[in-house]
Simulated scan of single mutants.
Amino acid sequence: MKSVLFPLPGNEAFAASVSKAMSCELGELETRLFPDGESYVRLLTPVKDREVTLLCTLHKPDDKLIRLYLAASTARELGARSVGLVAPYLAYMRQDSHFKTGEGAASMHMARFLSASFDWLVTVDPHLHRHHSLDEIYSIPTRVVQSAPMIAAWIKQNVSRPVIVGPDAESEQWALKVARDVGCPHSILQKTRHGDRDVEVTAPQTGGWENMTPVIIDDIASTGKTMIAAIQHLRAAGLPAPVCIAVHGVFADGAVADMQAAGAGRIVTCNTIGHATNDISVEEAVASAAAEVMPQLSFAA
Rank of each mutant, 00 (worst) to 15 (best):
residue 13 A to V: 15
residue 161 R to E: 13
residue 186 H to C: 14
residue 210 E to M: 07
residue 248 H to A: 04
residue 169 A to P: 02
residue 296 Q to T: 09
residue 159 V to A: 06
residue 154 W to V: 09
residue 42 R to Y: 03
residue 207 G to I: 06
residue 155 I to D: 07
residue 110 M to E: 03
residue 265 G to N: 04
residue 108 M to G: 08
residue 119 D to C: 05
residue 65 L to E: 05
residue 225 K to P: 02
residue 221 A to Q: 02
residue 142 T to C: 14
residue 37 G to T: 01
residue 8 L to N: 13
residue 72 A to I: 11
residue 263 G to T: 07
residue 273 I to G: 01
residue 268 V to S: 00
residue 131 H to E: 05
residue 152 A to E: 05
residue 202 T to R: 12
residue 91 A to Q: 01
residue 249 G to M: 03
residue 231 I to P: 07
residue 277 T to Y: 02
residue 280 I to A: 04
residue 207 G to N: 09
residue 59 H to C: 11
residue 189 L to W: 02
residue 59 H to S: 14
residue 158 N to K: 08
residue 165 V to Q: 09
residue 220 I to R: 05
residue 257 A to G: 06
residue 226 T to Y: 04
residue 50 R to M: 00
residue 227 M to K: 04
residue 107 S to A: 15
residue 251 F to R: 00
residue 235 R to G: 11
residue 216 I to W: 02
residue 50 R to T: 04
residue 6 F to A: 08
residue 21 A to P: 09
residue 98 H to F: 03
residue 48 K to E: 15
residue 58 L to M: 12
residue 120 W to Y: 15
residue 157 Q to H: 09
residue 12 E to W: 05
residue 299 F to Q: 15
residue 273 I to F: 01
residue 151 I to N: 02
residue 117 S to D: 02
residue 276 A to D: 14
residue 246 A to N: 10
residue 89 Y to N: 01
residue 146 Q to M: 11
residue 49 D to P: 09
residue 118 F to T: 05
residue 222 S to E: 08
residue 45 T to N: 08
